[in-house]
């Protein structure tokens, strides 16, 4: 069931994607769209200590055409 849901999500993602040209990415270039430090280091530490889960830390994302 989980695999089916994951596959469904992938299909929806791929089917729904629109090719956006670099000159159409004005909104995507807004800094808050991609900044990785919305939570400061103290908040990140609080989450890490108080939640038994781990992973999903910030990784470089692109798509805005700004790197």
């Amino acid at each position: 069931m989980k695999i089916v849901l994951a596959a469904f999500a992938c299909v929806v993602f791929c089917e729904g994607c629109t090719h956006v040209a670099p000159y159409e990415r004005g909104r995507l270039a807004e800094p808050d769209m991609t900044r990785l430090d919305l939570d400061g280091p103290a908040a990140e530490h609080v989450y890490a200590v108080h939640e038994g889960a781990a992973g999903g830390g910030a990784v470089a994302e692109s798509g805005c055409g700004c790197n």
Binding site: A9, F13, G16, C17, T18, V20, E24, R25, R27, L28, M33, T34, A54, G55, G56, G57, V59, E61, S62, G63, C64
Partner: peptide
């Protein structure tokens, strides 16, 4: 030891979606 794999994509002119797997 932590492995990370994923993808980030432009969904439309206003939306970015991403998905990342982590194995530690």
């Amino acid at each position: 030891g932590a492995f990370t794999a994923g993808l980030s994509g432009v969904y439309d002119r206003s939306t970015i979606l991403s998905g990342v797997f982590d194995l530690t």
